[in-house]
């Protein structure tokens, strides 16, 4: 009885979280998201043309407060080619978290991180959105051209957390996404807390879901 009531409560308090995967063509954005939502690696991938969409529901335990929250995750997957950038920037505006992916075996994809960050800051809902930098294809150790230290250094300079993952083996994939979920939920809760403090009144769960686009 208690459990079902809890479930009900949790369901009612679902947070709607929108993520967008960015990065050069062929770094493995689609594979990464597929690995996260389906739990497997599909070798028959095609290039993304325009933009694709996936979703997943999960229950997340906040790392700071320890509170359990239902999360409805919407994942947008973009085409990496530069030509499509002008078409996909419209999707940046209502995105809460960005998964910025580069390929550890491709130097150029790492160098282009900076320009992706600029894009992000120009078009995202605020100047400092939640971002996680992911170095994909960590399983291809012998082909690595970007060292972990170098990537960490770059991430530190950009002020974003960095993780290495492998869409092929599934290593760290869930951890990456959940780390970003955590950050976004923290921000959302903080916004709600701030609102509560400043307005001096309680905020309904509906507001929690909608009032996230504040930085």
């Amino acid at each position: 009885m208690i459990t079902s009531a809890h479930e009900q409560l949790r369901h009612d308090h679902d947070y709607l979280v929108k993520f967008l995967a960015l990065g050069n063509s062929g770094v493995g954005k689609t594979s990464l998201l597929y690995q996260f939502t389906e739990g497997c690696f599909n070798s028959q991938f095609t290039s993304t043309v325009g933009i694709d969409f996936k979703e997943k529901r999960l229950v997340h335990r906040c790392s700071v407060t320890g509170r359990e929250q239902g999360v409805h995750l919407q994942l947008w997957d973009t085409a990496g080619q530069e030509k499509f950038r002008s078409l996909t920037t419209a999707f940046y505006r209502n995105t809460m978290g960005f998964i910025l992916v580069f390929d550890l075996t491709n130097e150029q994809s790492f160098l282009d991180i900076r320009s992706w960050m600029e894009q992000l800051r120009t078009h995202a809902y605020c100047e400092s959105p939640d971002i996680i930098l992911v170095g994909n294809k960590v399983d291809l150790t012998e082909q690595h051209v970007v060292s972990e230290a170098r990537a960490r250094d770059a991430a530190f300079k950009l002020g974003v957390p960095y993780m290495e993952a492998s869409a092929a083996t599934g290593f760290n994939v869930t951890a990456c996404v959940l780390a970003l979920v955590d950050a976004v939920l923290l921000r959302m809760n903080r916004v709600v807390d701030d609102t509560r403090l400043t307005l001096g009144k309680t905020v309904s769960p509906d507001d929690e879901v909608t009032s996230v686009c504040v930085c």
Partner: peptide, 9 residues
């Protein structure tokens, strides 16, 4: 921010 960046890293 620092805490989250560190914890995720």
């Amino acid at each position: 921010r620092a805490m989250w960046a560190t914890s995720a890293g």
